[in-house]
Amino acid sequence: MAILRRKKSKLVEAEEKRSDLGFGTQITDPDTRLLNRDGSFNVKRIGGNFWGRYNIFNELIICSWKRFFTLIVAFYLVLNLIFACLYQAVGIENLQGVDLSTKGTGFMDAFFFSSQTLTTVGYGRIAPIGFGASTIAAIESLLGLLIFALATSLLYGRFSRPVARVLYSDKAVIAPYLDITGFMFRIVNEQDSQLIDLQVEVAVSMLKKQSDGKTVRRYYGLKLERSKVNFFPTNWTIVHPITDESPLFGLTQDDLLTSDAEFLVLLKATEDTYNQTVNSRTSFHAREVIVGAKFLPMFSDVAGAGVVTLDLRKLSDIQEIPLSSEYQPHQ
């Protein structure tokens, strides 16, 4: 029995072919960028369940070292204060060896006894007596074992997690390229660890007004001069040639600003030490694109050194240069 297939409408076919990176078409506020320079998505979720959207383990893995240790120390102090209050509640006198000359010294002894119990150090000067104090100490000892096991796994996860420490130039440029012009930005690997099989994808997001007068956001993939390199020991200037097939062809800087153009960048590579795939993201807004400039070399001339010297401080160094024809090939 033959199966009849309904012919798709032109609107459905057009919708299926529409390029969308996952942000949708409804974000049309010109003051809102899709991707922050640090690679984080500029999206805030509200209205959901806190525990449903917040992953504590993931947050502690990806946060900065400063924030990580601040949270660990704060948690350690608060937990010891809680147990010190519990010992105070059952009676400080149930901690044998506590200095009871003043309320302050007694509470501080309870606090430090809590820290010793939590870490299973147990110097022995203070010991719990009675059922209440002994029960609290037993619970705290068990909790301490679990907490330090978790802290150890967090430290291991942070040290063992490969991260692509790719630096991006502060600005992107529109510069002469061969006999035309090109959109360019520059990257470099900040770490001594090697990245291999590096691949890059670049797309541009722009606001477009439809025939019905409604403004929507459109996405266009940009063809690159080179989208993959096997090795990444030095810097790499990524170039999109602005040919007559480019979505940037014929656009001026004012056009880019009016259309709220944002260039979205995704890098994928294999980290050589752990042999794992890592990625890095960023974006360049139209305000961060300089028309009529080129990047200066990053190599430092060290005579007799016998090694290639790359100065990372020169990553964003540019020089103004006139364009023969703005965004256009030579006639």
Results as ranks from 00 to 15, higher is better:
M1G: 15
M1V: 10
A2R: 12
I3V: 08
K7M: 14
K7I: 07
K8D: 10
K8N: 14
V12M: 15
R18I: 14
I27S: 09
T32I: 15
N36I: 11
S40M: 11
N42R: 15
V43P: 08
K44T: 11
G48K: 06
G52Y: 06
F57I: 02
N58H: 12
N58D: 11
E59T: 09
L60V: 12
L60F: 12
C63S: 07
W65K: 01
F68S: 04
V73A: 13
A74W: 06
L79R: 04
N80T: 04
I82W: 10
I82Y: 13
F83T: 05
A89N: 10
V90F: 11
V90M: 11
G91M: 14
I92W: 07
N94G: 07
L95N: 03
Q96A: 15
V98K: 00
L100K: 03
G104H: 09
G106K: 00
F112Y: 10
S115H: 01
T119S: 15
V121Q: 12
G122R: 14
R125G: 08
P128D: 12
G132V: 00
A133N: 04
A133D: 05
A137P: 02
A137Y: 06
L142M: 15
L143M: 11
G144W: 01
I147S: 00
A149E: 03
L150C: 03
A151F: 11
T152I: 10
L155C: 05
Y156P: 03
R158G: 02
R158D: 06
L167A: 12
S169R: 07
D170M: 06
I174Y: 02
P176M: 05
Y177Q: 04
Y177M: 01
D179V: 09
D179L: 08
D179G: 06
I180C: 00
I187L: 09
D192I: 04
Q194V: 01
Q194D: 10
D197Y: 08
L198D: 00
V202Q: 03
S205D: 03
L207Q: 10
L207M: 13
Q210D: 07
S211T: 12
D212Q: 05
R217C: 11
K223E: 07
K228H: 08
K228R: 13
V229T: 03
F231L: 04
F231S: 01
N235G: 05
W236G: 05
V239G: 02
V239A: 01
D244N: 06
P247K: 10
L248C: 12
F249M: 02
F249G: 00
F249Y: 15
T252A: 13
Q253K: 15
L257Q: 13
L257E: 03
E262V: 05
E262M: 10
F263Y: 10
L266K: 13
L267S: 04
K268V: 06
A269C: 09
E271P: 01
D272L: 09
N275D: 15
N275R: 14
T277C: 01
V278R: 00
N279V: 06
R281S: 07
T282R: 02
S283E: 04
V289Y: 03
G292N: 01
A293Q: 09
P297L: 10
F299T: 08
F299D: 09
A303S: 11
G304L: 09
V308P: 04
V308T: 08
V308D: 02
T309L: 05
L310K: 06
L312H: 06
K314A: 01
L315G: 01
L315M: 12
D317F: 13
I318R: 09
L323R: 01
P329K: 04
Q331T: 14
Q331P: 13
Q331N: 14
